[in-house]
Amino acid sequence: MNLKSTVLMAAIAVILPLSASAQNVAVVNGKPVPKARLAALMQQANRAGQPVPPEMEARARDEIVLREIFAQEAEKRGIAATADYKSQMELLRQTVLIRELFADYQKKNPASEAEALAEYEKAKATSSGSEYRARHILVEKEDEAKKLIAEIKAGGKFEDLAKKHSKDPGSAENGGDLDFAKPDAYVPEFGKAMAALKKGEMTEEPVKTQFGYHIIKLEETREAQFPAFDEVKPQLMQRLGQMKLQKFQEELKSAAKTDYKFAQ
């Protein structure tokens, strides 16, 4: 072997360990800890929706090296051969397999924009009609409600009396304002009485519900408002994806041959 060959072989001997080292995060007791393990741990954090700042990679490196140290010790002590370890590993194997199955299905069967638009139009069609903006004053006793009605008719300001007397914490501070809603958003007695009013009118008699006695004043009405498709598209796509996955799960369940009877 000439001098040139000797130098070349020496260079290769140096390069090979460096190349192998580039594939590993560390070597623990002679066993390499591959970078692929670090990538898998970082990917798990991403899947869980956790933020992954730059300093997290340093913590992840520490974690996988510590895991290797502890795992090697567990192997030495024969823990991998115990029945408890094997049963837990079987559950873990199934968990990972199922997770990957569902992820693969969703990747290959995404919800389409056309499907989301069809769902949007269906929901929009059932949401037509009128919305009512009303104010109310809620009190415990009918006599108290009647006195307040008389006071309003005598010139008392509805908003001020609502702030002072209403027992509804959600609207009292706003002068009894309930914003826009459909009648079916309220208990039947309230919704029916509100829908019977004309703009600016107030109920002549207290309206009794399970909450107490209400005085209702109708401020205005409008056609039901519905968000634009682009505003709700992400939520629709997500919901349709979940529905597809649920259908896939049910199909697998129905097709399986088993003597087991599911509770539901």
Rank of each mutant, 00 (worst) to 15 (best):
V7K: 11
S21F: 13
V25H: 05
A26Y: 07
G30C: 03
P32Y: 09
P34W: 13
K35V: 03
A36F: 14
R37W: 06
L41M: 11
Q43G: 12
Q44M: 14
Q44R: 15
R47I: 09
E55F: 01
E55P: 00
M56K: 13
A58S: 11
I69P: 09
A71R: 07
A71G: 02
Q72K: 13
A74C: 09
R77D: 00
A80M: 12
A80H: 12
A80V: 13
Y85E: 05
Q88K: 14
Q88S: 07
T95R: 12
V96P: 00
R99W: 04
E100K: 15
L101E: 06
F102G: 05
E113R: 14
E113L: 09
A118H: 08
Y120N: 09
E121Q: 15
K122M: 10
K124P: 07
S128I: 11
R135Q: 11
I137E: 01
E140G: 03
E142I: 04
E142T: 08
A150H: 06
A162C: 00
K164R: 13
H165C: 04
K167N: 05
G170I: 00
N174I: 04
N174T: 08
G176Y: 00
D177Q: 04
L178I: 00
D179N: 09
K182E: 05
P188V: 06
E189M: 14
A193F: 06
A195Q: 01
A195M: 04
G200Y: 07
P206Q: 03
P206F: 08
V207C: 04
T209K: 03
F211M: 11
H214G: 06
K217Y: 10
K217D: 04
T221W: 00
R222M: 05
F226N: 06
F229I: 09
L240R: 00
Q242F: 06
Q242R: 15
K247F: 04
E251M: 12
L252W: 01
A255F: 03
A255L: 09
T258L: 08
D259C: 08
D259G: 13
K261I: 07
